[in-house]
Simulated assay, not measured.
Amino acid sequence: MTLDNWDDLKFVLAMSRHGTMSAAARYLDTNVATVSRRIERLSGDLDTPLFEKRGQTFVATPAAKRLAEMAEGFDQTLRWEVGRLQAGSDAGSIHLNVAAPPAVHQAYTLPRMHELSETMPQVNMTLTEKVFAQGLGDADIQVRIGRPEGGRLKARKFRNYALRVYHGADHKLDGQWIGMSLRYPDHDILRQIYTDAAETPRYRVEEMTLVHHMVTTTGLPGALPDFMVRPEDNLVVADLPDNELPSELWITYHETRQSDETLRAVVDWLCRVAATG
C-alpha cells in the first residue's frame, strides 16, 4: 500500500484528539462529510478499520492510535521548525499553546503574564483549559495532574500540592458543601475527607475556579488545592482528621521538542513561577 494522500493522517489525528467527526471538522475548518470521506478512504487503503462508533463518539483502533502517534510527532516537529523560522525573522513571533487546568492558569499563569512579555517578548501565548490529562492534543506545553506514563512525552515536576477542605472563617460545619460537576471522576472527593457531609452538595459547579469562588462567597466548605487559597480569601482549613490529599502537577511536552529552545525557556519560566508563587 502506498500512502499517496499522506495528509489523510491529519484527519486521523483530529479524530483521535476530538472524538467526534463534528469536532474534528471544526478543528480542521472543514465539514463532517470531508472528515468521513478521508477516514473511510484511509481505512480502505489500509484494509483495516480506524475508528469504532460508541454512542456519540468514535474510539480509535490500535491502527489509528499508531497513525495518530506518528502524526503527533510530525505535528510537533513541524511546530518546532516553524518556531525556528519565526525566531530567525526580524518580525517573527513564536506562538505557543499552553494547556492547564483553570486553577493553574488562575494561580500561576495569568497573574505573571506581564513577566513573560518582558522576558520573552517574541512569544505569543495561547492559554487553553484542559482538566483531564488525555495527551497534549493541540497544546505545545501541558500542565497536568500526575506524571504521564508511557508515550513520547518529556515530563518535569511542576509542584507538589495538597487538596484540602476549606470553608469561610465564620462558617460552622453543618453537612452542607460545594461539589463539582458530575462529569468529573472525583466530583465528590470532598466526602473522602468530610465524612459527615450530606450525600449530595448544596451546590455543584463546573470548574475548580468556581468552587473557589463559591467557597469564598458562601463560606460553605469545598475541596480546593492549597495553591489556590490566598490570605485575602478569609478561608480556613476545616478541622477534620487527615484533611489532606497529596498530589502532583507535572509539565509536559512532546519529545520531538527537546531541542526547541523557546519552548524549553517557557517551560523553565513556568517552573520558576511555580517555585516562587
Rank of each mutant, 00 (worst) to 15 (best):
R264C: 13
S181C: 03
A198C: 04
G151M: 00
L182F: 04
D268A: 15
T276Q: 15
R38L: 13
T256H: 06
S259V: 11
M228P: 08
M70H: 14
G73C: 05
D7L: 08
L85F: 12
L28M: 12
D242V: 10
L136W: 02
T2N: 11
D138P: 01
R156S: 10
F132Y: 13
L190V: 03
E261V: 13
V215I: 12
H254I: 02
W6A: 14
V205Q: 04
S117L: 10
T218R: 09
P241F: 12
E244V: 13
L245R: 07
E207N: 06
R26L: 14
D45Y: 08
T195Y: 00
P102V: 05
V215H: 13
V143K: 03
V165K: 01
T217Y: 12
P101V: 05
F58W: 09
T20I: 10
T216M: 15
I178C: 02
D45I: 14
Q134L: 12
T195Q: 09
Y166M: 04
V211T: 06
G151Y: 02
R152S: 07
E40Q: 15
W80C: 14
L220F: 12
T200N: 09
E129P: 01
G88D: 12
A71Y: 04
S247Y: 01
S93D: 07
H171L: 10
H171P: 02
D196A: 08
G179C: 02
G179W: 00
T20M: 02
E206W: 07
S181H: 06
A197N: 00
R84V: 10
L270V: 03
E118F: 11
D8E: 09
D138S: 11
V267D: 13
D233S: 11
D186P: 02
G135H: 03
L13R: 06
R17I: 13
S89R: 15
F51A: 07
A25G: 10
A103G: 05
K157D: 04
N31S: 08
S259K: 14
Q134K: 14
